[in-house]
Design a protein around this nucleic acid. Sequence first.
DNA 1: GCCGTTTTCGGCCCGACTGTTTTCAGTCG
Length: 574
Amino acid sequence: MPIHNSDIADIFREVADLLSIEGANQFRVRSYRQAAQKIDNLTQDVAEMVEEGGYLTELSGIGDSIAEKIEEIVETGSLNQLEEIKDRTPQALEELLDLAGLGPERVSDLYDELGIESGEDLKEAAENHKIREIEGFGKKTEQKILDELEKEDKQKSRYMLSRAEEYTEPLREYIESQEDVIDVEVAGSYRRRKETVGDIDILATCENRGKVMDHFVNYEDVDNVESKGDTKSTVYLRSGLQVDLRLVDEQSYGAAILYFTGSAQHNIALRERALDRNLKINEYGVFPEEEDEPVAGETEEEVYDAVDLPFIQPELREDLGEIEAAESGNLPDLVTMDDLKGDLQMHTHATDGSASIAEMAHAARDLGYEYIAITDHSKRVTVAQGMDADELAEQIEEIDGVNNSMDDFRILKSCEVDILEDGSLDLPDDILKELDMVLCCIHYQRDLSRKKQTDRYLKAIEHPLCNVIGHPTGREIHKRGEMDLDMEKIMDTAESNNVFLELNATPRRLDLNDIYCKMAKERGMKLTISTDSHSTEELNHIRFGINQARRGWLETSDVVNTHSVKDVLDMMAK
DNA sequence: GCCGTTTTCGGCCCGACTGTTTTCAGTCG
C-alpha cells in the first residue's frame, strides 16, 4: 500500500490536533502542523525519498524527530505515537475543533468537565444548559455553539473560486458605488487565487466609515449581520458565504492588504524576517523597535522593500520558497492572460459542445487568440456521442473549410481520444496521423490500482502519436478525488517522450493543481492551459487556468499555448 | 518539535475581538 504525501500530512495534522487538546506545548503542536503543510506542498514523493535514502531533514521544518516518524509511516503505514495518543484522548474530539469558537482549550474543558466527545454530546449539553455552568463559559458561548452546530450542517465546505467570484464581484462593485469609498480590494485566498476560498475579506479606504459600513450591511444579498463596527463588519450572504469588510487608513492600506491577503505562513515568514532587521510588521505598517512611527505601510511594495525584498505576486504567497526566490532575485515572471495565443481543448456540437467549429473559432479570435484546437470526444465516450474514425475524418474536412475562410486564424485538428483500460487509444493510428495534435484522456475505470493506472498512462504516453495528456488526475473539486497515480513517473515519461500535460482550466477541475504545475516546471516540462470549453462563453474560463498556473510558478515560456501556432505545431510534430 | 553570524538553549508573528471577567484567556485570521 503506497503512502502518499497527503497521507503523511493527515497523520501529522491529527497528531497536532490531539496534542493541542491534550495541552501540549503550542510550538510543538505548530511543528507538526508546519511539517504537515510542508509535506502537502512538496513536489517530491516523500515515500520515494525515504526509499532512496533521501535526507528528509534537509527540508526546512522537518527535524530528526519528525523525519524518523515519516520513515516509520512509510515503512509501517501508521505512526505508533498517534495510536498512543488516541488511547489517551478520543479521536472524535478532533472534529469539535472545526467548530468556530472552539479551540483546543475549550474542547479539552468540555471533555474534562462534561465528558463531551462528539457533536451529538455537545448539542445535548448545550440544549440542556450544561455548558454555561463550566468556568470560563457562559450563556452566549453556549448559544454560539448551538448556532455553529446548526450552521455546520448548512454550509461546511469551501467555495470554488469561480462560485465565490459570482458573489464577490457584484458586491465589490456595490461597495465601490458608495460615494465616500476611495479604494476597494478583495484580499485573502481570493486574491491569491486559490482554487477554493473559505470566506471573503474586503478592504477599503473611505471618507465616512459609518456611512460605508451602513451601506455594506444593507447590501441586498446580505442574509445576516454577524457584527458591525467602525473598522470591521462581518455578514453572511444568502448563499452562506461569509464576507468581512475592513476599513483602514490610507497610510496603512498596503500593510493591511498584505496582512489580509496572507497566507498566514507567508506573513509569519515576513514578520520573522522583519525581526531580524529590528523591525515589526503588523497590519498597520512596518515599525522600528520601540517606535510608533511606521517606516512603511502605504503600499505593499513599501512593506516588502522595508525587509529588502521585491514585490511578491499574491499567487506565490504560500511560503513555498517565494521569499528565498525573491531574496536571490529568482522570482518567476508569471504567465499572464495577455501571453496566451490560443486555447487547446474545446468541444463543438459534433459531440457534447453547443457551438459549431466556426462559432468557437470566431469567439476565440474575438478574445485575441491566433489559434484553437478542436478536441471533440472519441467514440468510447458514448455519453458525449463520441466520434468514430469516419466522423472525425468528416470533421477534419470541415475544419479545413473554416480554416480557408479565416486568413488570420488557425484551427488545429485534434481529438480528445479516450485512453482505454489497457492504455491503448480509442481510435486507429491512421486517422490520428491526420491530426495536428492528439489529446489523450482517461474517462472510465478511474479506480484502478496505482500501478495499473500509472501503467495505463505510460503506455498512452509512449504511443508515438500522443501529444498531450488532458485533465491528468481526473479530480473534480468537491466531487471526486484524484486517480491513484505515480505522478513523478508519469511526468518523467512524458518529458522524455515530448508529451505535454494539460492544466485544464474548467473551474471544477483545475487539473493539474498548483503543486503539480510546480512539479512539472521543476522538471523543465511545458504545460498546455486549456478551457475544455463546451460553449463559446466557457472560453472565458481560461483565467482560472492562468490563476492556477501562476500559483504553480509558471512563466510564459512554460506554457505551450503562449507560443506561436508554428511553434506549437513543431512541438506537436515530435 | 524546530532552529541557529547573538547556535545546542531559549526562543518561536501579531493584533483584534469576544465573552467572561474586573484584567484576561481563548480563538481567529
